[in-house]
């Protein structure tokens, strides 16, 4: 299975019936494809939609119905629209249950860096800072190491932060890790084909192995 597909499928299992969920651009958006049929969630787009549906067909395309990535989308039954100020009231106000975002780095305290690389890439934070601070649960969807093999799960983030102490669950192509406040990173699941040693070798942070450690199932 493709790494990104594995990550998206595993995250889909974290969602509960009735959750309000905001999916970030890229891999997080793929999560929507794998939500179990008996789990009904409302997908929120921070540009002003509650109840984002599948991508629009060519005939359905409208600039009045785009998601936060600028894609033409549809809405589900029971959807609603609102403006940006209201949307971020929902987000900061704790009315979003889960947000799924990509990350460049995460660390033992749950600090997240996902919006800039100084001197290289400064696209702006968009809604990411509000989402990780405001959502009840922050799930990070990330490949375990960078393109050149460097660990992304660190003792301390080195890049400028998006927010402090916000990550709850980290899902990678190698593992599922929970961030436990005042304790650290608890390794809960290992993807098929990897050993505990493999995972620790690719992780700069110290991993606390859960007594219930199991194989990642998707």
């Amino acid at each position: 299975m493709d790494k990104r597909e594995l990550i998206a499928k595993r995250i889909a299992k974290e969602l509960k019936d009735g959750d309000v969920v905001n999916l970030g651009i890229g891999m997080p958006t793929m999560v929507a494809n794998y939500i179990p049929e008996d789990v009904h969630v409302m997908l929120e787009a921070e540009n002003g939609i509650m109840g984002v549906g599948p991508n629009a067909s060519q005939e359905e395309e409208s600039l009045n119905c785009i998601d936060a990535g600028g894609n033409y989308v549809t809405t589900v039954k029971g959807a609603s629209y609102f403006d940006s100020a209201f949307s971020f009231s929902l987000i900061r106000g704790g009315h979003v249950d889960v947000t799924v975002l990509g990350a460049l780095e995460v660390d033992e305290e749950g600090n997240v860096a996902n919006w800039m690389i100084p001197g290289k890439k400064v696209p702006g934070m968009g809604g990411a800072m509000d989402l990780v601070v405001g959502a009840k649960k922050v799930i990070l969807a990330m490949e375990h190491v960078s393109k050149n093999g460097a660990p992304k799960i660190l003792r301390r983030c080195r890049l400028p932060l998006t927010a402090t102490k916000v990550a709850k669950t980290i899902v990678t192509d190698m593992a599922v890790i929970d961030v436990v406040p005042n304790k650290g990173l608890v390794l809960k699941e290992i993807a098929p084909g990897f050993t505990l040693e493999d995972v620790q070798n690719q992780t700069e942070a110290h991993l606390i192995v859960s007594p219930n450690l199991k194989v990642m199932e998707v």
């Binding site: 002003g48 009045n64 785009i66 403006d83 940006s84």
Partner: peptide, 8 residues
């Protein structure tokens, strides 16, 4: 209409 409310 729709998501065009945004910052408008």
């Amino acid at each position: 209409r729709g998501s065009s409310r945004n910052f408008n």
